[in-house]
């Protein structure tokens, strides 16, 4: 039998489901759980216990990873509320937002091709600022988890953040490419 993982990620760490999260409390709870369940604690135990330990440790890692970052946490809270963020299926984004994304991507490609590390640093900074603004927006939309209208609005914010996450990855790759050349 597998352990009882019907508990959600917040309950696993004995935390109240909320977008605003005390990250140091999360970190401490995560360590506390791993201290109990990590496979290293069960090196001399029997197979049943080792299996359970591996499943628990895996689950704790997954929960920690999900709750640690705003995008994953927001997406997860929406899922708990029964709302699909439609990140794979819904490609309809506001025209203005898409135009902005395209401009950014072109700027990243240009900077990469011309080896302009300063331009990339500027882009990385702009990216951070934009991301922070969206996280603040998401926090407002998820402040009251019983407000259905606000939660519906959060879907779009999550999708926007996913765009920004991908853009961040491209900036990283461009920086790597320039450093490596």
């Amino acid at each position: 039998m597998t352990p009882d993982f019907s508990k959600n990620h917040f309950a696993l760490f004995d935390l109240v489901p909320s977008f605003e999260l005390d990250l140091s409390a999360l970190e401490a709870a995560y360590r506390e759980v791993q201290r109990e369940v990590h496979p290293d604690r069960f090196a001399g135990a029997n197979d049943a216990e080792r299996r359970v330990a591996a499943q628990w440790a895996t689950q704790a890692n997954e929960a920690y990873k999900t709750l640690r970052t705003p995008l994953a946490r927001g997406r997860y809270l929406l899922r708990l509320a029964g709302i699909d963020t439609e990140e794979e299926s819904n490609t309809a984004m506001p025209r203005e937002f898409l135009m902005g994304q395209m401009a950014w991507r072109e700027a990243v490609v240009d900077a990469r091709e011309s080896g302009d590390i300063d331009a990339l640093d500027r882009l990385a900074n702009e990216h951070r600022v934009a991301e922070r603004a969206l996280v603040a927006e998401l926090a407002a939309q998820l402040a009251d988890l019983s407000n259905e209208a606000l939660l519906q609005g959060a879907k779009l914010t999550v999708r926007k953040l996913r765009f920004l996450e991908k853009l961040g990855e491209e900036i990283d790759l461009a920086q790597e490419a320039i450093e490596g050349s």
């Binding site: 039998m1 597998t2 352990p3 009882d4 759980v33 369940v37 197979d47 049943a48 216990e49 359970v52």
Partner: peptide, 20 residues
């Protein structure tokens, strides 16, 4: 060992919640 599978899982659940 197999007969203790669910016993192990229950004890682990309890120990985690006590630790927290």
């Amino acid at each position: 060992s197999r007969s203790t599978d669910s016993f192990a899982a229950k004890r682990m659940d309890r120990s985690v919640s006590q630790a927290l």
